[in-house]
């Protein structure tokens, strides 16, 4: 009797495995194995004619330590960090307001935050070029408001790259903050207030700590795509503001130097995984993507 039910259980389990095997094999074959191949390529050799031989060398990693690449890596980290901070400062009040203050139009407002995520990333990034070009709408508004003199150049600088990042990734920051602000209990705030805390104290001692999970989740959701970003620095930054993603594009698609590109992408993967693991270990109670 017991062995019979055990057999039934293991048959049921077998059915379960049978159902996940297709997706598992698909991801193994086209996601995990390719990543292992990158790792192997990062230790391979390339000769002057572009021929790749699989002789173990760590030369590719030494080549990344040159000033050109270390500068790019630091620039990438700086741009991604600044963009995340701007998203947080600009996004927190939005998430807080929609989650905590607004009840009537909550669904509509959150839909308005999500819609851009569905719209073409290329089109959204392209739309910023015309706004900030020398004769663009932004300078036209400045002229209209009475600013005279030379029209400032807004594109191809760190601030146009950061603007593009914030413009594209702000929804990723707002959603988790909204989710944690929605769970805020107004009674906690009232209690603090009736005990004599000033509004500023209530915010820093009660509201902020309670919405911390949203802040961390939002920061990671912005920082990770920003570190690997290609299109925003490509269109709004130019060569001066190239990030790791742009160099990978050139190394692979123009130069065809797979060993060097593999080593650089291993560095990028390690950066991203390091931050993700740090987040999961210290900040996330459960993996909450907020989508």
């Amino acid at each position: 009797m017991l062995s019979d039910s055990n057999a039934k259980l293991s048959l049921k389990r077998l059915k379960g495995y049978f159902l996940i095997v297709p997706a598992f094999i698909f991801e193994l074959l086209f996601f995990i194995i390719p990543l292992i191949i990158v790792f192997v390529y990062s230790f391979s050799k390339i000769d002057a004619f572009g021929r790749i031989t699989f002789e173990f060398t760590i030369q590719n990693y030494f080549n990344i330590l040159t000033p050109e690449f270390t500068k790019t890596i630091l620039r990438t980290l700086a741009v991604a960090s600044i963009s995340t901070i701007f998203c947080l400062i600009l996004g927190y009040p939005i998430g807080y307001y929609i989650g905590f203050k607004e009840k009537k139009y909550q669904n509509l407002l959150i839909m308005l935050i999500i819609i851009p995520f569905w719209l073409s990333f290329v089109a959204r990034t392209y739309s910023i070029i015309s706004i900030f070009s020398t004769n663009g709408i932004f300078n036209q508004i400045l002229t209209f408001l009475g600013f005279v003199g030379d029209k400032p150049q807004w594109l191809y600088a760190w601030y146009s790259v950061v603007f593009g990042m914030v413009y594209n990734y702000l929804p990723m920051m707002v959603l988790p903050i909204y989710a944690s602000a929605e769970k805020l209990n107004p009674q906690y705030l009232e209690a603090a207030q009736s005990l004599g805390a000033s509004p500023i104290n209530v915010f820093f001692k009660v509201t902020l700590p309670l919405t911390m999970p949203g802040i961390f989740a939002g920061s990671i959701l912005v920082f990770i795509p920003a570190v690997g970003e290609f299109l925003v620095p490509e269109l709004l930054g130019g060569i001066e503001w190239y990030m790791i993603g742009n160099h990978l594009w050139i190394i692979f698609l123009t130069m065809g130097n797979y060993p060097l590109g593999s080593a650089l992408s291993i560095v990028l993967i390690i950066l991203v995984l390091f931050i993700t693991i740090l987040y999961i270990k210290y900040f996330a109670k459960e993996v909450e993507l907020g989508l």
Binding site: P34, G245, L268
Partner: peptide
């Protein structure tokens, strides 16, 4: 395994698939 493809930067996935 299902979620990591969303976390890893798209460009590294793209170039790893090219190498494959």
């Amino acid at each position: 395994m299902m979620l990591v493809p969303i976390i890893i930067p798209e460009i590294t996935e793209a170039l790893s698939l090219l190498l494959f």
